[in-house]
Design a binder for these strands. Structure first.
Lengths: 135, 135
DNA sequence: ATAAGTGCAAACGATTTGCGACCGC
DNA sequence: GCGGTCGCAAATCGTTTGCACTTAT
């Protein structure tokens, strides 16, 4: 005898689909640009609110690897990232995640560990080329 | 026959000393507060500029573990961090750093890897208590 | 009817920047 | 005297919020 609370709205579905359709790790305003092709009147505020909501509900991941803007990842599996410190691009790292270190750190710090994230930094192939060319 | 460029200025020394005197990982405005005790007229802009300069020159580390503000670490040795997602506090993790993964990731991604950072997240001992008390 | 979600514009917080004054060689 | 820094205020950038209006149930 209750109202079923609306959850997955039209804009949320579009945002989720857009994020899952790319393998990059878009920032909020990149998502805004992508989504606007399907929803020309959406506001940047809704993009932020809904990305936050999707991350909170576990549909996507919010990743914080350096740089000023936060980025989003359409997958929910645990994995690590590389970030190019020249162009800012973020890519996935195909490396089996560590399963034991959380427990080990929990024991030695007293913190109740809920997870960890590894961010590599370096130069992506393209930026390696352009930096040598400029020399 | 040249001017020796002034590098380590008075304010830079004070900031460096202040950062090295603590084991916490202060944000820029926490540093501002600390440094103001010795330099009451320093501006927040100088704190930002000089922390940036110190990190660039390798005197300190700029660390980016979630949260909106960046944090600084007076040590230069490679080590990992835990961040409490309740109070935001950041602590060091006493764990011998991985030495091989950079090379492995470099091989499988094509990026030229310059380093990595691991950030654990969880609840610090104090916040574990307060959350159970509030129940 | 009503709780949840939206778009818009304004607010916000962290950081950066332009600029004239200043300090150390 | 001159290049590098400084303090100050204003600007910028990413993100969040208040609010009045729509939308699904």
């Amino acid at each position: 005898m209750k109202h079923l609370k609306p959850r997955m709205t039209h804009q949320r579905e579009i945002i989720l689909r857009a994020l899952r359709s790319v393998t990059s790790h878009p920032t909020a305003d990149e998502m805004y640009a992508m989504v606007r092709e399907h929803l020309p009147h959406i506001s940047i505020a809704s993009v932020y609110r809904n990305l936050e909501w999707l991350a909170e509900k576990g549909f996507v991941q919010k990743i914080e690897v350096g740089g000023r803007q936060k980025r989003f990842d359409g997958t929910t599996t645990v994995h690590y990232h590389v970030r190019c410190h020249a162009c800012g691009k973020v890519a996935d790292v195909a490396m089996t995640p560590f399963t034991d270190i959380d427990r080990r750190v929990q024991e030695c710090t007293g913190y109740h560990i809920t997870g960890h994230h590894i961010a590599f930094s370096g130069l992506c192939p393209q930026c390696q080329h352009s930096s040598t060319e400029n020399k």
